[in-house]
Amino acid sequence: MTEVRHNWTQDEIAEIYHSPLLDLVYRAATIHRENKDYSEVQISSLISIKTGGCPEDCAYCPQAARYNTGVDVHAIMPKEQVLAAAQKAKNGGASRLCMGAAWREVRDNRDFDKVIEMVQAVNSLDMEVCCTLGMLTESQAQRLADAGLYAYNHNLDTSEDDYKRIITTRTYDDRLQTLEHVRKAKISVCSGGIIGLGETEADRISMLKTLSNLPKHPESVPINALVPVKGTPLADQPRVSVWEMVRMIATARIVMPKTVVRLSAGRTEMTTLEQAFCFMAGANSIFAGEKLLTTPNPSFDDDMAMFELLGLTPRKAFKNGRPNIPKELKEMSINEVI
């Protein structure tokens, strides 16, 4: 079995990343097949529970208040609407629901209380619950854990050196500190990045180095291709090629062999054949459903047809065990949490 390492060097990862493409994919596919469930793909659904009006200046994001992108600002979604979306996602084959809010950081207020209630409610559907809400304190992370949160997404986006070009309203250390708080609360960590921001290949390699050298590898690493949005500073960025995505996925698979690597934003531009290459290279998770927060995404029906063609099977929820949540919460019925 492949050794799980936390001491990768920039040069070692660069050598992997720049190896001949077919050799790279073969190596990644071999490592992926050391796991007997290599054909199993986790299906997640991502919904925006609070849209737009974010004070951050992330250069790629249509939800930043300072950019004119045509995204309407919506207050936090009612719990009943979240539950309906979760049930629809589950019916479509998703085992995880990720709820995103356009916040810089979580604040201890009524909106956070509502998120806690949503986490409890979605848990009652027997789905893994993930949140991406911005920066978290230790106590907030623990509160989410106590409510039964399974995973928390907080992407690094790019390398530490490139970060200030993309975001100035928070630091790279802020990102890493939130990941520490999530890990300390024993919540599964989901953290990856975006390619196509105008970064160098060295930046991509450096980001993978940071992720792979964390004390524990993230359980999930999303690899996103930038979807340029009119009105953002990166609106005119050229789209990345599928081969760049394949290189990133394959390299991530090799340096983090046990991690779930998610083929995320950018799938609408890919053919089934191109997505198949990504699965061959080690991707074993996708987002399904018509939207990723505010950007288009393939439908559940399209994805199920692709799974059937490629011989892929959806991964069941809680494969790695349920979070340690209070017994009384586990025993609550859906009627009690509504």
Rank of each mutant, 00 (worst) to 15 (best):
A14R: 10
L329C: 04
L310I: 11
P326R: 15
I249S: 04
V242E: 13
L83W: 05
G311R: 04
M256P: 09
T268V: 05
V41L: 03
Q177T: 12
A75K: 13
N109G: 05
E56L: 02
A86C: 06
P323E: 13
R253V: 11
M280V: 07
Y17L: 09
A225Q: 08
D302F: 15
T169E: 10
Q87I: 08
G266W: 00
R33N: 04
S220V: 13
E40L: 07
E3G: 05
S212D: 15
Q177P: 03
V82W: 11
K316H: 12
L214R: 14
N297W: 12
R262Q: 12
V246P: 03
H181K: 04
I194A: 00
A86V: 10
D303C: 06
D157R: 03
T272K: 09
D173S: 13
R107S: 06
D162W: 11
K114A: 14
V261S: 10
D111S: 09
D111Y: 04
R322C: 11
M127P: 00
N320W: 14
Q42S: 13
A101P: 01
S45I: 04
I47Q: 05
V4C: 12
E40R: 05
V221W: 03
I195P: 00
N224M: 10
P62H: 03
T9K: 09
V242I: 14
N153G: 02
G289M: 10
K50E: 10
K327S: 15
Y38N: 03
H18N: 13
L293T: 11
L133I: 05
L293N: 12
